[in-house]
Design a protein around this nucleic acid. Structure first.
Lengths: 199, 199
DNA sequence: AATGTTGGCCAACACTTGTTGACGAAGGTA
DNA sequence: TACCTTCGTCAACAAGTGTTGGCCAACATT
């Protein structure tokens, strides 16, 4: 119920304020609500109730609902480096494994996916992640620079598709897959999208 | 603006009523709104305005918002038969092509995906489609019956992931892919998920 | 022509939403 | 002590939501 998250609750910008605890509680509650309910159904009142404060505090600290979402959902995929010659041929396996780790204990990713589907700002945020984080990884291992965007998009389609069916739609057979199975099946796909000659 | 959809607007149940035109207009408007706005933001008032009728008519004909959604989003993927020995090795190519055809001119699929992400009823509907339509196809080409659900789920993850990045999130590199490119890249993936020995 | 049925609109309901401003309590500083 | 900033609550607003029931015109049936 308190802020022992994986993502730091207290931002390191500015001097520490007396209200940092409240600010953190709001962010934590917001992340949870956005993840489970999506943007529209995650009401400020519900978030405030979860954080045990008054709804007006949310407005004071984050201006409005969009500002709250922007503050609550800050994503760094911490994608590993796969530029080494030995790692380049293992990129698929490494990336799929890392992706699963990220998704398993990070409700922020589910929140962003849910919001991205129904909210324009959320969709643009996801486009930014593809551009700023996934694309550089593709550049590390992809031979032809011109094909990098397409290959990164293909990789995103498979990885996000898995997250969608498994963590959001919770389709039973997708939920039932063991981690090792997912890696074994998806790694060759990602590897091919990144490094195989274009078909 | 009228009901020249791929999915029949007038259901073939019961005698033709004088209000069938209105009913159809409501369904068409609902499909469009659900597709572009998702469940929550697609308000009955907006749908009624699009259909040029009073909001109360929607309630009279479809009981409530959930009933309207259930009536508006009825999906038949019309998946082709791939049980023939010659077609079995082309299943990947056939299915990806068919899937793209379906998505390109069918806003109902986008609607269901948008709603499935934020609405429990929508998510269950998608689970039903996987179970009743995708799974049988996997059964046609998959050797081991016990692996059918897992393989169908893998296929769904890649196909839905493409739809997500291309038609919902509209990530630029995914939108920029040509139809032939998508088929060429994704067909081997689907083919492998369906027929390759489990890794 | 009289009747019952259907299609449609209007006005209102109970409720929830995001958002705002006034006001008091707590804490630091002079 | 007095002052000023910060933190928090309370009550309310304006707008929009799904939903309901009453009323009237058009139609069909007898």
């Amino acid at each position: 119920m308190n802020g022992s998250d994986s993502t730091s609750t207290v931002p390191d910008s500015g001097a520490p304020r007396r209200s940092d605890a409240t600010r953190g509680a709001i962010l934590a509650a917001a992340r949870e609500r956005f993840a489970t309910d999506g943007y529209e159904r995650a009401t400020i009142r519900a978030i405030a109730r979860d954080a045990n404060i008054d709804p007006s505090m949310v407005m004071r600290y984050y201006r409005n609902k969009e500002g709250l979402f922007a503050a609550a959902v800050a994503i760094d995929l911490r994608l590993p480096d796969v530029s080494g010659a030995d790692r380049r041929q293992d990129a698929g396996r490494i990336l799929v494994g890392h992706f699963l780790d990220m998704w398993e204990d990070n409700e922020v990713l589910t929140a962003l996916l849910r919001v991205g589907v129904t909210n324009q700002a959320g969709a643009e945020r996801m486009q930014g992640i593809l551009r700023d984080q996934l694309l550089p990884v593709a550049r590390q291992v992809c031979p032809d620079p011109e094909q990098v965007p397409a290959r990164a998009a293909l990789m995103a389609s498979q990885l996000l598709g898995l997250a969608l069916t498994r963590y959001v739609l919770r389709m039973p057979p997708a939920v039932g897959l063991a981690r090792a199975e997912i890696v074994a099946w998806l790694a060759p796909t990602i590897q091919r999208y990144l490094t195989a000659p274009s078909p």
